[in-house]
Every structure is written in C-alpha cells, then in structure tokens.
Design a protein around this nucleic acid. Sequence first.
DNA 1: AATCAGCTTCAAAGCGCTTTGGATAGTCTC
DNA 2: GAGACTATCCAAAGCGCTTTGAAGCTGATT
Lengths: 343, 343
Amino acid sequence: MSMNLKELSHQLGLSQTTVSRALNGYPEVSEATRLRVQRAAEQHDYRPSARAKGLATGRALAIGHVIQTSTRHEMVNPIFADFIAGAGETYTRNGYEMILSIAEDGAEEQVYRALRARRAVDGVIVHAPRMNDARIALLNDIGLPFVVHGRASGIALPYSWLDVNNRSAFGRATTFLLDLGHRRIGLVNGLEFMDFAHRRRLGFSDALAAAGITADPALMRSGEMTEEFGYTSARDMLAGTTPPTAFLVASMICGLGVRRAIEAVGLRMGRDTSVIIHDDALSYLQNGGAVPIFTATRSSVRDAGRQAAEMLLHNIANPDHPAANILLEAELMVGGSTGPAPI
Amino acid sequence: MSMNLKELSHQLGLSQTTVSRALNGYPEVSEATRLRVQRAAEQHDYRPSARAKGLATGRALAIGHVIQTSTRHEMVNPIFADFIAGAGETYTRNGYEMILSIAEDGAEEQVYRALRARRAVDGVIVHAPRMNDARIALLNDIGLPFVVHGRASGIALPYSWLDVNNRSAFGRATTFLLDLGHRRIGLVNGLEFMDFAHRRRLGFSDALAAAGITADPALMRSGEMTEEFGYTSARDMLAGTTPPTAFLVASMICGLGVRRAIEAVGLRMGRDTSVIIHDDALSYLQNGGAVPIFTATRSSVRDAGRQAAEMLLHNIANPDHPAANILLEAELMVGGSTGPAPI
DNA sequence: AATCAGCTTCAAAGCGCTTTGGATAGTCTC
DNA sequence: GAGACTATCCAAAGCGCTTTGAAGCTGATT
C-alpha cells in the first residue's frame, strides 16, 4: 500500500529509530545519513501516518473548530469561511490539521466533551461567544486549551482571547456621524446576546451620551444580520415621524439591505442619508475597490483567524503561560456612504 | 488523565476485548455484560481515542475538504460555509470527522498527496471544479476516494459527482426572460474556466439561439462573483447604446451589485429592468422572505453538501461500486425582480 | 595496550485500540 | 455421561510511529 517507516528503513538498511530521527531533525544522526534518508523519503513520498504519530506522541496535531448551526434558522456565520482560511494558513505552516465539527442547537457541550475524550484535538477555537458564554468554564473544566474569537462579558476567570475593539469602533463611528451634524442615528445591530453586538451597542450609546443625546429606542434594532433584516429595520425607521438621517449598521450584508430601504423611499445614500457599516473584509464581499462603497469600521477577520490560531498554538506549546489577549482596533475608513446631515 | 480502555476494563473486571466488543455491538457479548459496560462507559465519559482506533482499524473516520485560496485575490468561496454545514451533518451522524486543509495557489496537488500519504482521511470532496480539472485524474491515481461537487467538462473517465443542472437552469431562466419580451439580455457570469460558469453560459446561448437570437459579446461578462463585479458589469452594459432590458446574474451577491447599477442610472429593478440571479440559498444571504427579492434559479448548497457527503461515505463503504452521479434541478422561483420588457 | 569520550546506530517498549485464535463453562443430543 | 455445540470471555498480536536505554565504532588520551 503506502510507504511506511518499517519498509523505508528496511530499504535503507537502517533502523526505524535512525530514520525517524533523521526525519524529525534530531542531532544524533550524521548529516550524511540524514541526507540519504531525506532523499529516500521524498522519493517514495513517505509521510508518517498522522494517527500513528499522534498515538506515539500523545499529541493530535489538530485543532478543532466547532460551528454551531441552529436548526431553527439554519444560519451559518458568514464570517466563518474567511476566519477559517486565515487560521488554516497558520495550521498548515505549523503542521497542524484543522478539524471542523458542527454542533446542532444545544449539543455544543457534548461536542466539546467528545473532542476532548476522543483526544481528537490539542485545542479549540471558540467562535461567536455570547455574553456569559458557558463554553469558557466548560473548556477550563475539561482542560482543553482554547482561544476565544471575541470575548464574553460576565466571565470573571482569565482566558485567552482575540477580539476587535467593537465598543471603541462603534463609538468612533457614532462620533464621526455626530460631527457631520447627524442627530438622529439608527442602529441596526446584531443579536445583542452575542457579545460583539452588546459591545457595539455600548459604544454607540456612549458616544451619543457624550454628545448629550439619549438613545431613542425606536432607532435601535437587533437581529440576525441578513440583508432582509437590514432592509426591514431601515424601512421601518425611515417610516417614522422623525426618521434618522444616518445609520450605523452591523455588517456589509445588512448594509446592502439598508441601502435598498433608503433608495426604496427615494433617498440617496451618502447624500440624504448616511450609512456606516462594520466591514469584516470578507473576501467575497468586498467593500468596493479603491474608494469604499460604505464608510466602514474595518477589521480583517481573516487576519484575526491567523492570529487567533497562532495564539492557540503558542498556548499549547507553553501550557503554563498565563492567558494572553489581543485587542485589535478597527480602522474607520471613509467611503461614499456618509456626508453632512441634511438641513 | 482521561479514561481509556485498559483502565475501564480493569475497573469492570473484564478484558479489553470484551469491553471493546460490548461497545462496538459485537454479538459475542451477553446483553447483561453489554449493559454493564455501556453504563460504565457513559459514566466515565469514555470514548475510544480516535487515533488509536484509526491505527487499529486502518480507517481514518475522517473526510477531507480542501479549500483553495489564491494569494492574489485571497478569495474564499462564499458557498463554502453552507456546503460544509450540510456535509457536516452527514459526517456527525455517521461518526466521521471533517478535516479542512487550505491549499495556496498551486500547492493543491501536494495537499491531496499529503492527505493520502499521512492516511489522514478516508476520502475527500472536491470543490469548485474547473474544466479539465487535473485533480480528478490525480485522485484516481493515488486511489483516494472522492466525490466532486460539480463536474469537470473534458474529463473522460467516470467519477462520482453531484451537480446542479446549471445549463438547464440558465436555459430556463433565459427562456423565461424571452417570454417576457426581453430581447437584449446581459449575462453577468462567474469565471468561465470554472465548470459551472461554463455550463451556465451554454444554457444561456442555447436558449437565445433557440429563439433565433445571437448572443451579443458586449452583453456578456465573466469574473469573480463580487458585488463590485456585478455593479461594474451592469453599469458598463447599461451605458451602451442599446442597453439590455434584463440581466442574468451568477449569484445573489453579484445581483446586489447589478441592482445598485440599475438604480444608479435611475431605473427600477423589476419594472424597467429585469434581473434573474442564481440563488444558492445561503443561510446568511437569503433571497427575501415570503416573496423573493430576486427571481432566481434556486438550489440549496447546504442540501448539496448533505448529499455529496452521503455519496462519499457510500463510496467508501462500497469501494467497487461504479461511480454514482446526482444531477439536481434548480427551481425557477419568481420574485419581484422580473417583469415584461418595456416597450 | 587499555581507557575514555564522542559520535552513530539499534533493539525494544509503549501509545490505545481492534481482532484473531483460543479457552472455559454451560447446554443439548443421543 | 460422552461428544458436540453454543455462548462468553480472554491473552496476545498488530496497527505505525516515537523514544528510552544501550551498544558498536572511531580516534584520542594516558
């Protein structure tokens, strides 16, 4: 079948020990032998069996990503693909594999436990944390290394995370709109039990408060970030007696819906109504070319994936390092969707 | 550390053989013993080590998905997340794991070979096939079971695939527009070295030809399916001397760009200009609620994932079955974006 | 010549499971 | 009650690797 250590060492007239050491870069092998071995390995396209290696070393050389899909709305997180692509680069570079498990509603705890019990992974990345997310305590309990992409308000114990400073980003975006003269700003936010959405809301209110404005509940929506949600939210707000002159929107997709609503009532985005979105820099949904379509708070989720993965591998290699944190600042990029408030 | 067979069997006062057999449903164990064993296993949250089990059985119980990202445009296929979610359901139900590898430009062959050589997976799903895709011959050569999501025109040897009938879908959509009186129809297509885009183009030309119309090269664009691409393509076509009255568009995202272009020149989609998109039924980008925003050829990519995975598992279990094929027909769903051609 | 050190290489154990080929005890058959 | 089953259970081998502890060889040292 396929080449294995025994066969290879036999052909070389060496012991398995020597061949293994030669390939893994141990010093107790002469350079001449190492070269000979490497050449032969390459020639036969020999690669150690992942399973056997894992068994022998006790390390899985794999990282788990658990993606949750609710059967209700069957929603898959759209940023997932790009995050994964970023993380994957890091894994590949370090000889790790990425394993994906999907967890249906409520089965999450079981999925993590199973991953641990079967020793299938050396660690996991926690996606889309909610406030007080129970997974953090769980993973701590079962002793599976992890890094959270995002944070979980309400969790006291320290843990490793990498997050965008959502609060500051939405604060700055709000201030930017206020500076342009906007006084009625609509917030089209994600589901607010999700931590990132919660923080964005805080940033929004903070900035309004700092300008002496109380947030109007009629101008705040929270929901799953679809085009449709953006559309209906904006449409409803625009239909009010004193419609907003600007919108702060959770995502590019949502923003497209908001634009649709604006144009549906005969207004023009960027002139009559301003819009700022958060742009995850998704590869398949870029915010225009040289000049962004939308003014946006921008932070590459692919990059986040890369860094989160590095952090996790580092944690695994240094088990008793204290929890590390990375807080990324989003850039505020001015595009064509914002302008001074109409008088 | 974590419970293993040895420890568990010791606690039960049974041999490892018996415990293993009890848990794997072999008949040479009394029901009483099996129950006792199962109970203990559950209580200790025992689950066999994936690696050890794999080593012993020679099966990886894992399926590989290779996603390619070009460093040039760093594009990740947006349908990927939903496809994966669908496939993942099937894997979970069957005790398989899903492993993801990302392959940078050109390194694809190496990635597949490595997957095989390390015996990391029992099979792979091939994504986004191009015409004459070299991966099919490669996988055949190295003897790694696979199922292609899509097809590869120009490949003679039989192989397992699951595809949407893109040609017929775009043919029907074109005919639908022709029936509404449209005579100048713009095609905003994906990259035409991708097999699906090639077939869609054929369906488009077929239908035009059947109506006695020769496709106008000025009304056909091919590119990466971004919002921006949809926008610029439509904008340019609309700026021509005899602009199209309808568009046939490769994806929802593209369609959003086309709509933007239509509205930018003061036309209204569905009244002045008709649009039909292909809708992959992505969970995060739904084509409206009850009434679709866009008239669309629709086919759930999540469902495709489920079925492709089932097909692959079946192929693995029955190695000498002949190659199987599934051709899904897309539904033509009428939404608000189409109407009779203006006179 | 004997000893030592340093460099290479090796045999064998062990990782946690499945599976083969018995062994043992209980049941039937005649 | 002997022989033939049948139902349970077990010891040990083997999956393909890494790693420990030891051994062989060389040339230098005493």
